[in-house]
Design a protein around this nucleic acid. Structure first.
Lengths: 133, 133
DNA sequence: AAAAACATGTTAGAAAACCTAACATAGGAT
DNA sequence: ATCCTATGTTAGGTTTTCTAACATGTTTTT
């Protein structure tokens, strides 16, 4: 939960770069922040600095908007997704301590079915990979 | 030669971000550019925009300077390294068309020995990985 | 149908970040 | 003792970003 995430959440990009990367206007990006769909960091001088995670989120937002989802909908989706990944994570952790290998396999299989039924769009994530490597 | 490189050479970061990432001053970064060790892109408004490759180069420059190498030395090292990778690349390409598998294996073995003897520091490259993933 | 809400555009004024160019300087090299 | 190298510092100018406000075309609600 730290090694990888610390880096992808590192504030690196000014809004201009993000505009190009996402093809969103500054207005749109700020509006989505206003509605708490993202929370970019700030420099000492109050300029926004976006992380790779922020950009992933923005690309996802753009996608959802194209599909007619409104702010409230997107917020809910993000919430649920966060919860889900928390659940999966915590349970995986709990499982590691408490369960036998056999039991663990069963649990994971269940979780994954759940995710597949619902979390659909999370498979399209990590879109930033299109910019690097 | 295109897929990966296009992305790592994508102009993304303003100088402020690069300063933090590399712990170099703006003066240093501009000075290295002046000596053509890097060539960051520019925005329409003439602001520098650095790529991941630029940052890799800067980290390498910093390293070499710590080891007492001066501008001229670094320039030469970069030149040789670029040539080398060109040679390896071209020969690999030529080889793919002209040589048998057996011959190809021999050639690559040779090239790699060469590289190992000389290109040493290139193994420490791709340092940006420390910031992501 | 009128009013309200939503998502985005546009504008204005201010502040931050960056630019180039010039001069300053400590430490090595000649 | 002088010159060169790498970097610091300063000044004046330009670009980018900020917030806040008002404008506008679409949907929703009433």
């Amino acid at each position: 939960m730290s090694g990888k995430e610390i880096r992808r959440s590192m504030p690196l990009f000014p809004i201009g770069t993000v505009m190009q990367l996402t093809e969103l206007t500054a207005r749109q990006i700020r509006y989505y922040e206003e509605h708490q769909l993202i929370s970019p960091a700030r420099t000492d001088g109050n300029r926004r600095l976006f992380s790779l995670n922020d950009i992933d989120s923005l690309l996802e937002i753009k996608d959802l908007i194209d599909q007619g989802v409104n702010m409230a909908g997107i917020k809910q989706l993000f919430l649920v997704k966060e919860q889900q990944s928390n659940v999966v994570q915590q349970q995986a952790e709990k499982a590691k301590q408490e369960l036998s290998d056999e039991q663990l396999r069963n649990l994971l299989r269940h979780e994954l079915q759940q995710a597949g039924r619902f979390n659909r769009s999370s498979l399209r994530q990590g879109d930033m990979s299109r910019f690097f490597h």
